[in-house]
Design a protein around this nucleic acid. Structure first.
Length: 202
DNA sequence: AAGCGCGGCGCGA
DNA sequence: TCGCGCCGCGCTT
């Protein structure tokens, strides 16, 4: 198994994004997304990568390099305000998002399946997701989402608390920059959605 | 057994 | 109207 990682800077947020792909050595086409990870700064990125021992673009085949570039661009565009449905785009590019592997229990799988139905610009709540799968284990749902290895792609940021509070993001309720990031994503999507509606009215 | 990105309730500022 | 503590909830570690 080979890992390829790259990172982009989110200028408006002063954060780093680490994106990790992998593939079978002999496999020609199939590229698997392994994780997307937001780091607060350069130091955190280096530290994280040292632990994981990812290889940065070591001899990528041509086609995969293209794929990687393209997906980095997509994420960059999305983060800087593009109206982009990342899940669909990744699917189109034939990048596998290994949901079963990352969410092995039937509960966790159901949770993210119903979360994936929440579209760009929409929001939901932990309790709504629970209702959708017939569970009142609202805390358990947060428990699943906090370990989401694919933020942005699996849209955790669209899940708010039922009372309107923003709730947690990327594993934390208290970490300010994570909460700000969640807020930022919500703002981007909302303003884009409004823009789209305006255009549609004409 | 402990710990949760929650929700609902009740309380006291 | 908050913020907090408490309990119930059910899943993960």
């Amino acid at each position: 198994m080979k890992f390829i990682a790259s990172h982009i800077k989110v200028s408006s947020l002063n954060a780093k994004v680490l994106i990790v792909f992998k593939w079978q050595k002999e496999s020609q086409e199939k590229v698997i997304l392994d994780e997307i990870k937001f780091l607060e700064n350069e130091r955190m990125l280096v530290e994280y990568n040292n632990n994981k021992k990812y290889e940065f673009f070591e001899n990528p085949l041509e086609i995969k390099q293209e794929l990687i570039k393209k997906s980095l661009n997509l994420i960059e565009n999305y983060l800087s305000g593009g109206y982009i449905n990342l899940y669909d785009e990744f699917k189109k590019m034939n990048i596998e998002i290994p949901l079963r592997e990352k969410f092995p229990s039937s509960f966790s799988y159901k949770v993210i399946q119903s979360l994936l139905k929440i579209k760009y610009g929409e929001s939901t709540s932990y309790s709504y997701l629970g209702d959708a799968i017939g569970s009142r284990a609202y805390r358990a749902i947060g428990n699943i989402l906090r370990k989401n290895p694919f933020p942005l792609i699996i849209p955790c940021h669209r899940v708010l608390r039922k009372n309107g509070q923003i709730g947690g993001f990327m594993g934390s309720r208290k970490n300010l920059w994570k909460i700000e990031l969640k807020n930022h994503l919500i703002q981007i999507e909302q303003s884009n959605t409004k823009l789209k509606e305006k255009k549609g009215e004409r």
